[in-house]
Design a protein around this nucleic acid. Structure first.
Length: 422
RNA sequence: GGUGAGGUGGGUGAGUGGCUGAAACCAGUAGUUUGCUAAACUGCCGACCGGGAAACUGGUCCGCGGGUUCGAAUCCCGCCCUCACCGCCA
């Protein structure tokens, strides 16, 4: 969530930035400001009452020590009214704070300077396109290729669990494992520390990264122990830094991690979810950065370059989108999406999303650092997929298909031990 | 699952009703000195929300939530969590 101090200090700028999302947030911003003002004045009144009551209590203690019981009794009588007052102010304050929090939760992150205005995905800006569509002699969609070469059995997954839980087998399983290993090795070479986090998280972690309380329905929940299956490694990895105060010299913190990801995807259906396009369980390597606020946009660019490097080494035709305000995620200030070409489906598939959250996430997480003035300041967080497996697999299969079989990208051959799937 | 112990500041850990926002030690930090890859000494050093130009100052916080009391880290109740041992087990 946004910081109320920032909103107070830069009311107009915040409204302008938010307007890029194609919606007017003036009313919400103003009610946040109004609530914050009320919060402060109420607190001043409360504090005064408490201060008086504290000082009387201290006097009573001293009087007892001097054996002046009578005078102590007189003071005791006075405290009754103060208590009553304090209680009222306390209740009022709590109510205002809840209301303020509720308003703040409704306000999305303010888009960064470079983010184009716009409401729909059509208004996203294509900032880069790499290579060409492959020239193919055959164009089978990946689900047919999976069946033909016995790589992924979707029906079997339905039997064991349900739709969206595919079974990878043989060379399909090995290709999957190779990609994970290669992604992790690349990340390590780029200076990321590898993390193997839990894939079930508690409620506090879900709140920390913003999945809870709102997007509860998107996660698998285990009520017996009140745990949630992670929708992305971002959740456990970012929560490592919940309630932490870093030193300035700790930056940059670079973590990566492979985990399976679980998403209920309630409400999705149709052609978009065919094959590997959308799953309930999939694998992903995630990169997470914590940065000094001065450097977060520079870091966003370098993360984008890093992800693009992976796609280039895999030889995939891709493009980079700078998302417009309206398509930028709730918590993000600026997002690049990387989309690879799916030759048989003849459409772009999103395989990575790299975002700068500025201090939006850090605010909920209470992730801070001591700045040069010795003050605690919120850190900036960024993350990105590097990469999500299923659509990468889909596009490798489709783009590299030949009548003789599917050509494995060179970088993966040492990992999987074969160079063609046939 | 059973039994027991416990949750205090970045860490270890003292603290059973007012003098404790909290001893001591470690870590951190600023400086002094001696000098050589460090040591000694001294000062500072929790977080959050307010007021103030500033010096400074009010309030809250000792797992969380309630209660008793003029006053609670300290007493009472509920919850959560951790650890140890036993049982089970990859």
């Amino acid at each position: 969530m946004l910081q109320i101090q920032d909103i107070q200090a830069n009311r107009n700028a915040t409204v302008d930035r938010l307007a890029k999302r194609g919606k007017d947030f003036t009313t919400l911003i103003d009610s946040a400001i109004e609530l914050d003002n009320r919060r402060r004045s109420t607190q001043v009144e409360l504090d005064n009452v408490l201060a008086e009551s504290n000082s009387i209590s201290k006097q009573i203690g001293q009087l007892y020590a001097q054996c002046k019981q009578d005078e102590a009794e007189v003071l005791k009588a006075k405290t009754g009214l103060l208590k009553e007052n304090a209680k009222q102010f306390e209740e009022a304050l709590r109510a205002i704070e809840l209301e303020l929090q509720d308003v703040l939760y409704q306000i999305p992150n303010a888009p960064g300077e470079q983010v184009p205005e716009g409401k729909t995905p059509e208004e996203n800006k294509v900032v880069y396109t790499y290579s060409e569509k492959p020239a193919l002699t055959q164009k089978l969609p990946h689900w047919e290729l999976c069946e033909k070469y016995n790589l992924i059995d979707f029906e079997l997954g339905v039997k064991i669990t349900g739709a969206g839980f595919p079974v990878y087998r043989g060379k399909g399983a090995r290709l999957q494992r190779s990609l994970i290993n290669w992604f992790l090795d690349e990340a390590r070479d780029a200076g990321y520390e590898e993390i193997q986090p839990p894939i079930l998280v508690n409620e506090a972690s879900g709140i920390g990264t913003g999945q809870l309380p709102d997007k509860e329905g998107q996660m698998y929940h285990m009520p017996v122990d009140n745990l949630y299956a992670i929708p992305t490694a971002e959740v456990p990895i970012t929560n490592i830094y919940r309630d932490i105060i870093l030193k300035e010299s700790d930056f940059p913190i670079k973590n990566c991690g492979y985990t399976p990801c679980f998403r209920r995807e309630a409400g999705s259906y149709g052609k978009d979810v065919r094959g590997l396009n959308r799953l309930h369980q999939f694998d992903k390597v995630e990169i997470v950065h914590l940065e000094h606020p001065n450097k977060s946009y520079e870091t966003l660019e370098s993360m984008s370059q890093y992800v693009q490097g992976l796609l280039q080494k895999l030889g995939l035709h891709y493009r980079v989108l700078l998302l417009c305000g309206g398509d930028t995620g709730f918590a993000s200030a600026m997002t690049y999406d990387m989309e690879v070409w799916s030759a048989a489906q003849e459409r772009w598939l999103e395989v990575s999303s790299v975002s700068n959250f500025e201090s939006f996430q850090a605010n909920r997480l209470k992730l801070r650092f001591k700045n040069e003035n010795g003050k605690n300041e919120l850190a900036h967080t960024l993350n990105g997929s590097a990469l999500a497996l299923p659509r990468i697999v889909a596009s490798i299969l489709e783009n590299n298909q030949t009548p003789e079989g599917i050509i494995v990208p060179e970088v993966l051959r040492p990992y999987c031990g074969f160079d063609i799937i046939n």
